[in-house]
Structure formats: C-alpha cells, structure tokens
Design a protein around this nucleic acid. Structure first.
Lengths: 234, 234
DNA sequence: TAGATTGTTAATCGATTAACAATC
DNA sequence: TAGATTGTTAATCGATTAACAATC
C-alpha cells in the first residue's frame, strides 16, 4: 500500500491508529464528521452565547437539550466527534465551549462576504448589524442597476457594479457570497460568482441552483417554511 | 378495544386493513408521514412550477432528482406516501403533480399571514410580491414603535399597533405569523402571539423560542448557514 | 462519600437506495 | 413489441437514543 496519502490522515488521527490501515476513501468516510452534526454546531454556539450573555458560566447537555428541544445524548455525541469539552459531575464551561465551537467552525476570525442584490431584501441584509459578532462582515454590496450603483448602503458601503465583481474579489478576498436577487437572475448570477472563484453561496432566491460539486450552496426561502407549516394546518 | 377512535383511522386507511388492529398511537406513528418527507414537498413543488413556466408538460423522477441533487428513488418514495401520480414509461404530468402537491400541502388556497416587526427586514418581507402565488398573503404588519404605527407598508397596508393583535386576529383569521423582531424581543413577542391563538411561527430572530408543543416554529437565520459553510473553508 | 454528569458503546430506530415486477 | 419509468419491496446505510462505567 502506498504510504504517502495515508500518512496524512494518520497524523490527523493519531489516536485512531488501530483502524488506520483501511483504504484512504474508507478512512475519509469513516472519520469524516456527518454534515448533519456540523449543521447543529452553530445552533449550539448561538445558545451558549445567549447563556453567556445571561451571565451563566456552566451548563449541561441536559440543559442545552431542553433549550433546543433535542436529547442530551445527541449533544454529547455531537461534541464527542471533536474532543472532550466537559467535566463529569459539573458539565460544560460555557465560554470555553463557545471558544472551542468557534474554532471548530472557523469563526474565530471575520470572514468577508459579498452581497449581490441591493433591493429591499439586500438592503435589509446590508443593514443587519449582528453578522460581525458571529464571524462575518459584508464588505461589498453589488447590483446591476445603474440607478443603484454608487448609492450608499449598509454601514459605510456604496453599491458597486456587479460587472466589477472580479476586481472587487481580488481586493476583498471573499469566499462567501449572499444572493438577494430575483429568481430569474439567480442562475446567471450564481454562474458569474462561481466563475469568479467563489465557492460558498447563500441563496435567497427561490430556486435550486445548478452548480459544480466544489461549490456549496445553502438556501433561504420563507415559502418553503410556510408550505411546510400549512401541511399541518386545516 | 373502543371502536370509535380507530374507526376514523380505518376510513383513512381503507387499503391498510390488515394491520389496522394495532393500538391507536402505534397506528398514528405507523401511518403518519415523516416530517422530513413533508419538508421536501415544497421543494418539489417549486421545481415543478419552474418546469411548468418553461413550458414543459411532463417530467420524470430522474429529471427532478438531477435538478435537486437527490436520487430518483427518493422522489418516487416520497410521492408514494400520498398516492400514485405518475405513469409508467412516461413519468409525471407536471401541472397535475403541481395541483396534487398543492392539495397535499394545503396551499390550494391563500393563507393570511401576520408580520410582526416593521424594521428593514420586515419591510423587505412586506414588499415581497411572490408570496401570493405560493399560497400566502401578508394581511397585517405590526410593530410596537409609535413612530412606525400608521405608516404605509407593503402593498396597500399600514403598520398597525402590535398591542391590537387580538382584535386584528379576529378580523384576519390568520394562523401563521412571521417574526422579524430583534432577538431581545423575540421570546416576549412569541408569547403574545401564542397567547392570542397563533400556532405557526416563522422566526427570523436568532434565538430558539420556548413554545408549547401545539405551536410549530420554523427558523431562518443566515448566520447558522454561514457558520455551517465556514466549517468547510480554510 | 454521594450526587451529578460526562464520553462512549451497543441497540434501536428511521431514512435512503438499489433493484425489479408491473405497465404505459 | 421494445423502451422507459413508475410504485414498491427489501437491503443497506446512517442517525438517534438508552444505558452505564468513569470520574469530577
């Protein structure tokens, strides 16, 4: 067996040496953490911060679970993928666990974000003050409407020409884009963002984007939530 | 065994008569459709409508799956919970399947929705024109800020006093609320909405609400999506 | 020490997928 | 008829939970 590609994984997984003799892909999928677990970490983090704001110093998987409506076992299991963060008998130190989750999620820094679309939704997003404390800063708001280009928006920004995307990206170094554009423009805009090198998109347009596998897209569409709720209504 | 409560289920499940002798709760949980399936139906519907807009008349589970990045088997399985909507060899008639999904999701009508919070996000939501075609109409926008009350908003609405919630609900008959309020106000506002009789809430505030079991809450928080994405970034 | 709570294992539960007979 | 695609079954895969030894 070729030693080199496996060696990398072995470093990452020092304590897993027993099972390390498996094939590379297997190893990947075996030790890779389920995306569904990753998806819950931001919710844990948000809740922990709320507790910290209330002046609390420790909590338990049980308390967190009650807050969130999930089982304490799930919380402990989820965290156990990343290490041991608690103390038997006492629980978790809130600010320590916050720090750890921020590191895991890579939000122990500020990520520059590009916002495309300066309609009323885009404006609301640009105005939202709380991104910064969560690890994100909107560094650029772009639109295609000549009427809008040059107008002030958000906190000291000016609407820029989406045609200048590539130049702006060189300066901002953003890897993340938010799309607040009409559905009919969304696929084209996504294509341009991807072509310019972006690989993470948060899409507010009510459409599933066709993107290459390297690009991650998440969606926000209130209609999907409404229609989910009405299934249970009469 | 008491015949009456079971009888109801038996009607609903005529063809399932073999297994119908189980306990009520069991029967419920056995024949109840998984929430995760319900959650995909609006996405199917959205995609089908897009195809319809392109003038397409039929599609297949394979084509839908490719659009959405899921397996054709999953789509067929999901739909099979509700009936048979396709034709072997040809696939699904798009407009027929749209109609059926709309019925299943109860969006073959217009649901009145109350919007609480007339800040910039609330304003963006109030301005959004596309709810109507998906089954929803914002009938009331409320806020607590005396400066805002009385101002025009959205399509011919006026911002109303949130203190008048109960009277407004009597008129509008809304069962669904959207909360676009600051995090610090969200739990209180939710309590008031629930106390007034609402049972479905779409919450844009970055907080998990404590609500009684009869109330369904869905959340939209861009930060959760951002932090999910940054896990995969360097 | 007694009580509490973790991290982890094994069992359970549920969701997804592959495969195929039925049939358009 | 030949080809395509459904609806459904059974197998697989993965996620959640219950339980408990370890230990603070």
């Amino acid at each position: 067996m070729a030693p080199t590609p496996t060696a990398n994984l072995l470093q990452l997984l020092a304590e897993e040496s027993d099972n390390a003799a498996v094939k590379d892909e297997k190893a990947q999928s075996k030790f890779t953490i389920p995306d569904i677990v990753i998806g819950r970490l931001p919710v844990y983090l948000r809740t922990l911060r709320l507790l910290a704001d209330e002046g609390r110093e420790v909590t338990s998987s049980q308390e967190l679970g009650e807050h969130l409506g999930i089982s304490s076992a799930q919380i402990r299991k989820d965290l156990s993928h990343f290490g041991e963060f608690g103390k038997q008998g006492t629980g978790y130190n809130i600010s320590f666990l916050c720090q750890q989750l921020q590191k895991i999620l890579n939000v122990d820094r500020i990520w520059p974000v590009i916002l495309v679309g300066a309609g009323s939704l885009g404006t609301a997003i640009a105005n939202y003050q709380e991104f910064e404390s969560s690890g994100f800063r909107i560094v650029s708001v772009m639109d295609e409407d000549p009427q809008k280009i040059g107008q002030p928006i958000g906190d000291g920004l000016q609407i820029e020409d989406f045609a200048d995307l590539k130049q702006r990206l060189v300066i901002s170094n953003a890897q993340i884009a938010v799309m607040a554009v009409p559905a009919h423009a969304a696929q084209r805009v996504a294509g341009q963002l991807i072509e310019a090198g972006l690989n993470s998109i948060l899409c507010y347009a009510p459409i599933t984007l066709a993107v290459p596998p390297r690009v991650r897209v998440e969606y926000i569409d209130p209609v999907i939530h409404f229609q989910h709720m009405t299934y249970y209504l009469r």
